[in-house]
């Protein structure tokens, strides 16, 4: 019976265990979130305060008119994402979403490599109601145009 937990202590032990797990999970989550959460950038923010190389971030803005260039491989495209203050070159390999067109809004998930933003994924809205929440504060003429285009 030596390994038996004392009656008085059992509930205490269980509570302590649960608390430790909870706090552990919380701390772990806090640390990981600090390092792993992908921050959302507007082009001007990206240019003013670029994230570290290779860090996963999101970039949201307008696809500049006439900027989409398809590379010879047929699946890599280069284009410019801009807001009213800055322009960021973006590279993406893959199948673009249906609503990805020049002059429309886009959210690109990816990372900075040198001065180019390499996107792993382009998010377009899935239904007519979807406007990226992150864009709601753009509050410039660009934002209005983004909403107009993606609405």
């Amino acid at each position: 019976m030596s390994t038996m937990i004392k009656p008085k202590h059992q509930r205490l032990v269980l509570i302590v265990l649960a608390l430790v797990a909870l706090i552990g999970a919380g701390l772990l989550a806090a640390i990981a979130l600090r390092n792993q959460a992908a921050y959302f950038y507007l082009p001007s923010e990206l240019v003013a305060k670029p994230p570290e190389m290779g860090r996963a971030v999101r970039l949201g803005g307008m696809v500049e008119k006439g900027s989409i260039r398809t590379q010879p491989d047929g699946v890599t495209i280069n284009f410019i994402v801009k807001d009213d203050k800055a322009r960021v070159p973006v590279r993406f390999s893959g199948i673009t979403p249906d609503l990805f067109v020049e002059g429309s809004g886009v959210v690109a998930e990816g990372r900075m490599e040198g001065t180019t933003f390499v996107a792993d994924n382009l998010l377009a809205k899935h239904d007519e109601k979807y406007v990226p929440r992150e864009m709601k504060n753009m509050s410039t003429a660009e934002a209005k145009a983004v909403i107009a285009e993606t609405k």
């Binding site: 003429a141 934002a143 209005k144 145009a145 909403i147 107009a148 609405k151």
Partner: peptide, 13 residues
């Protein structure tokens, strides 16, 4: 050119 649209404060359609 969305001129009227912007002039009346419309942000989308």
């Amino acid at each position: 050119l969305s001129q009227v649209q912007l002039a009346i404060g419309s942000s989308g359609v």
